[in-house]
Design a protein around this nucleic acid. Structure first.
Lengths: 376, 376
DNA sequence: CTGTTAGCGCTTTCAG
DNA sequence: CTGAAAGCGCTAACAG
């Protein structure tokens, strides 16, 4: 409250030059320990808060990190953001949010990225986008702007990213169904422009192949990760003659699984009795619906945290310039340094959460035991 | 891309002083129209992007708006943010997000607000918080920092806010149940620290009173707006002897209603047959659950948009200083001005969305007609 | 290790 | 209506 102190005030109070104050502020090594302590003290006493704006102007880099997100409406975005904001809370950075308009034409993505690049307001960017937008994001990286792709990444070797191992998660889910005795296992695909849609399909194929089950094209249908986009696919699969109808289904998202369960119900098929269903994501409501959904849990908050960690590591390190990228191709993008602990590519593990919808649990489910679920 | 142009570059290209360029940039009136046009032209051609940082430093006010949110995990926050970010997209402002740590002790709110006040990074703040946090927020306002309370407001006459008319929405919901013939209508209350919990209760009481139905304390139980926090309350209400057991229930949120439906199921009570249920919020899944939930829809995105509008109006207007607040008490907080269209207090209407859970619809519901729902 | 000197890019008086 | 000059609060070379 009181008044707003500036670096000059602190310098005066401490009897040093403002350059020195600036040095302790930025943890430069070349400061006498006792001086440093005294300055820290004084800053504490008057509860000095440096101006982000001024340091940004002078230093050419603001203590802001940007996060580019698709629609706030997608619940997983909120989960990732929870991790992001919690992590940011432990740093001196503030959080700037850029969101792609819900009805954005495709090249709005380019526009907003251009905007970010031209304002250079944030020091770096976390981009949560469908994988096929990677080229846009890569432009930033090429221009030397620190950026980390998050969630649905193209595994681009040249750009830092954080994702989950969707292939393995899906593999585990389908393998679980196979172990439950199913042979006719269907899959509802996600939209083609998401890398992870392919990855989930790939995990599905892999599990089938390992079990020596031939892939049946009749059992694969196209969804779009959302509830309504899966209804047609579900109808298509469940209307098959009983002899060829799937006895189990691996959905590319939980929402897709919800649609399957509802459609199954409309066909008089019981889940899991007549159809075992497994989803992917483990969004909040999946533990609550009936039957509770067996699904592959993504560590959304952790994804966000890792993204921030990675980005901040990048910011403490001289950013890889476009000019020297040829060299970087074969080397790690980052040289090891104090701030740099993790490698520039992080792939997180998923876990299979077994609940009622896959039929693995025999016992009756009661309201009070909705939450406990076995985590493999 | 190319290089980054500065005001000086533009000034040089246009053959004027940078002061003039700055004037057109900020839409000051005192500029020769032709000069203004020429400068606009040039800025266009080189796609000049002024530095937010520099103008912030020089002008003392950054073109950033802050939004303070409780947990990203609450889905309604995402909806509000959707409106906020869409609105912000139409302005030259950027969006800064402050989020209260999930496991925040209560006075962290004070801390983060202090932080915002002392950094003065954003030009103004939209505060989405439980109503009982109003005093913290009011401190900002008292210090002359533009702030708008959003969603759960204390109706503080002295501070700008945006909310929905929860009382009336609840009244409509309960009235609808009464019109359906119910007399024993229960209510599950929200947490005491939310103003809107009281408002919803108030609307409930009002509808009962109007119908000449005596309020029965046995039929009111305490929840906390969340699913798990409502299970006990639901048990309490539904375990009543059949003669006194409620035939209908107005839940303070949709999540609360979900819990009621599940508990009813565990008692062998059919919804809506044995128990009509109405929620409040209309979150995304409420149209999808079975039975589809009759509920009071809050215009979340619109709340966000109005909040931004109001805040921006405040920013174009000399902010009410603490010193002159005595005068302001009896007058509108804002003097009318170009940027100021809406009054500083906005209360939005809710709508009752009638679906299956209240028993008003007789027809069988099929998967394909999950979405269509009657909006009163 | 520390002080001095220039600015970062823009806004803002204050004179014209 | 317009230009000149003086910073906003901080960082970043340089010299010492």
């Amino acid at each position: 409250m009181a008044r707003k102190y500036t670096i000059d005030d602190i310098a005066q109070l401490a009897g040093v030059s403002k350059a020195t104050v600036s040095r302790v502020l930025n943890n430069k090594p070349d400061v006498d320990p006792s001086t440093r302590a005294r300055i820290h003290q004084i800053m504490q006493e008057v509860s000095f808060v440096p101006s982000i704006t001024a340091s940004g102007l002078a230093g050419g880099r603001n203590r802001l990190v940007g996060v580019l997100i698709p629609s706030f409406s997608w619940s997983f975005v909120g989960e990732i953001m929870r991790g992001v904001s919690e992590m940011i809370g432990h740093t001196p950075y503030e959080l700037l949010v850029y969101s792609i308009n819900d009805m954005a034409r495709d090249n709005d993505k380019g526009d907003i990225l251009d905007h970010i690049l031209s304002t250079k307001l944030p020091a770096g960017l976390l981009a949560i986008l469908p994988g096929h937008s990677a080229p846009y994001v890569e432009r930033l990286h090429t221009h030397g702007f620190p950026v980390v792709m998050v969630d649905d990444t193209a595994h681009h070797p040249n750009m830092p990213w954080v994702n989950v191992d969707s292939v393995h998660g899906s593999y585990l889910a389908v393998k679980h169904l196979i172990e439950l005795g199913h042979r006719r296992i269907a899959h509802i695909y996600g939209p083609q422009n998401f890398i992870c849609a392919h990855e989930r399909y790939q995990g599905y194929c892999q599990a089938l192949e390992e079990a020596g089950i031939a892939l049946d094209p009749l059992l694969v249908a196209q969804g779009n990760f959302e509830y309504h986009g899966a209804l047609d696919a579900a109808h298509q699969l469940l209307s098959l003659p009983a002899e060829v109808r799937p006895t189990a289904l691996f959905a590319s998202t939980d929402l897709t699984a919800y649609a399957v369960i509802d459609v199954a119900d409309s066909y008089g098929l019981r889940v899991p009795g007549d159809l075992a269903v497994v989803g992917f994501d483990d969004i909040e409501s999946s533990a609550r619906i009936r039957p509770a959904l067996t699904t592959v849990r993504q560590p959304f908050a952790e994804i966000g945290k890792c993204g921030v960690e990675l980005l901040l590591a990048l910011l403490n390190t001289p950013v890889q310039r476009a000019d020297s990228s040829l060299l970087a191709l074969s080397l790690p993008v980052l040289t090891p340094s104090e701030g740099m602990v993790r490698p520039p590519h992080i792939s997180l593990q998923t876990t299979l959460v077994v609940r009622a919808s896959c039929g693995a649990q025999r016992q009756q489910q009661s309201v009070d035991e909705i939450i406990p679920s076995k985590v493999l």
